[in-house]
């Protein structure tokens, strides 16, 4: 594929080559290549069922691969045991999903602090960092409410705060605005990409919404289990 070349000399933050993933006999990924540099926001688009989410899960080491490799920061992620991959997800990655990601019985601030506490930070410190991030995402007023008691837009910003609080180098966002109206969605994207740029975190942004994808630096399209880098194509022809 044309877009899978890494920048010359320096290694990309995360490089996936020839990924294969089957669910039963159907191939969700069939030789997909993907690369992302530090601080880069890459939109992953494609029709429903094209394998966008599967690609994200494979890149994050959540799903086991049926073929291919994922290299992250010098480690071959796909060769690490599950415990190591989990550790990496705690320390280096952040996640934002479309819905159902907050633990309903924990308060919002506890949900945000979750990432830090998983990494072993003491409760008090974790919650004070969490509060700072919530302020930054303009949801510190719902600090002590449960997710069920706040609006969808606030909930999603809480989730974004949680993804950012541990200082990840790479954020995986799967349809982060899928459950939001366009105004809330745009605000959430602004805050997410703004914060990511400030902290230098890279973002893999899976979305079917071009207005969301417009917050990225670069776009790839997943089609038939493969990744097409359309940005690179136009760059090559013009």
């Amino acid at each position: 594929m044309s877009g899978a070349n890494t920048a010359e000399g320096t290694e990309a933050l995360l490089t996936a080559t020839r990924l294969r993933k089957y669910f039963g006999s159907t191939a969700a990924l069939n030789g997909a290549d993907f690369t992302i540099d530090s601080g880069e926001v890459v939109a992953v688009m494609g029709p429903s069922g094209s394998g966008k989410s599967t690609l994200l899960h494979c890149l994050a080491g959540i799903l086991d691969l049926d073929g291919g490799t994922v290299r992250y920061d010098g480690h071959e992620l796909s060769a690490l045991p599950d415990t190591e991959r989990s550790r990496l997800r705690r320390s280096d990655f952040g996640f934002v999903f479309q819905f159902g990601q907050l633990v309903p019985e924990l308060t919002c601030v506890e949900n945000v602090a979750l990432s830090l506490r998983l990494a072993g930070v003491a409760r008090r410190r974790a919650e004070s960092s969490a509060t700072e991030w919530m302020a930054r995402l303009e949801v510190d007023d719902v600090r002590d409410k449960r997710p069920g008691q706040v609006s969808g837009g606030q909930r999603q910003r809480v989730a974004i705060a949680r993804a950012l609080v541990a200082g990840p180098r790479l954020i995986f966002a799967d349809e982060p605005t899928g459950a939001l109206d366009s105004l809330n969605g745009e605000r959430a994207m602004e805050l997410l990409t703004g914060a990511a740029r400030d902290t230098g975190a890279a973002v893999v942004l899976v979305t079917h919404d071009v207005r969301v994808a417009a917050y990225s630096d670069r776009e790839v399209v997943v089609r038939d289990g493969q990744v097409l880098d359309t940005t690179a194509r136009i760059a090559g022809t013009t």
């Binding site: 899960h57 994050a60 959540i62 415990t83 991959r85 989990s86 550790r87 990496l88 997800r89 705690r90 320390s91 990655f93 996640f95 999903f97 819905f99 159902g100 990601q101 907050l102 633990v103 309903p104 979750l114 990432s115 998983l118």
Partner: peptide
């Protein structure tokens, strides 16, 4: 189920 999967994605230990 969904929250549990998300927690695992976050790198939560199953022992937790």
């Amino acid at each position: 189920r969904r929250q549990l999967s998300v927690l695992i994605a976050f790198g939560t230990r199953r022992s937790t």
